[in-house]
Amino acid sequence: MKNLLIKLFFYIIGLVTISLGVTLTIKADLGAGAWDALNVGLTESFGLTVGTWVIIIGAVLIISNALISKSRPDLLAVLTILVLGKMIDFWMSAFAEMSMNSWIAQLVLLLAGILVIAFGVSLYIQPQFSINPVDGFMVALQKRFGLSLTAAKTLTETFAFIFAFTLGGPIGVGTFIILLGIGPAIHFFDHRAQKAMKRMLS
């Protein structure tokens, strides 16, 4: 029971941390990640909050992933979209008045957001529970069509990028900085988070 609680702690805290990082990248106003830009674009085009669109798109992807991979829907992934969606709305509200008055401040906020997202991802993947539907979309494509993870990731990001651009979402230089920087940042934190959880479990 203790081990389960520790793993659940890493999982939930990781998701909450990711939501904070996502909010920081959006507030930096240099361009958000492709999926986050899509959610912002949907908010600006159709209303509802960014977090609500995270939940809606996540639910659609859970069903789509099951159809693509010809398996049962990953119902536990619902937890990821609920936590991310609700917490993104919380942080967006908390930082509603935040505005950067120089591009240097924007860049610093963007880089901070990338590091926070990466730290959160490194925490939430340690217990090896259900992954969020966006990552599930990548895995479903990879397994169904025999793609490499890199190719599958590129396809899913391109899909989100096109729709975000069409909807007028915040696509910019920050979008490409996130795309290039998030992988190395996750790699930096991953083994540290792994060691921390192992210490707590032992």
Rank of each mutant, 00 (worst) to 15 (best):
L20W: 00
I81V: 14
V22L: 15
G58V: 02
A96K: 11
W103D: 07
V108G: 07
G169L: 02
T43D: 12
V121L: 10
F188K: 03
L48R: 14
G172A: 11
N65F: 03
I104M: 04
V173W: 06
P73R: 13
V173H: 05
A77Y: 02
S102V: 09
M138G: 05
L42Y: 05
G181F: 03
I62R: 10
K70H: 15
S45H: 14
I18T: 13
N101Y: 06
T80C: 12
G136S: 13
V108C: 03
I81Y: 00
S69M: 09
L109D: 01
I131T: 14
V121M: 08
I68H: 05
L179E: 08
S45Q: 15
L115T: 02
M200H: 07
V16K: 10
S45P: 05
L61W: 08
E97T: 02
T23V: 07
L141K: 09
K153H: 09
N3F: 09
G181C: 07
Q142L: 00
R144Q: 09
G21S: 13
L123K: 00
V60W: 15
A118M: 05
K7T: 11
M98L: 15
F137S: 09
A94N: 01
A152C: 05
S69P: 00
W35M: 02
T175N: 14
I63R: 07
G120T: 01
T80R: 07
F46G: 06
P133H: 10
T156E: 06
A28S: 00
I182D: 03
R192T: 13
L84N: 13
L79T: 15
L20T: 01
M87Y: 14
L30Q: 07
I125K: 02
Q128N: 12
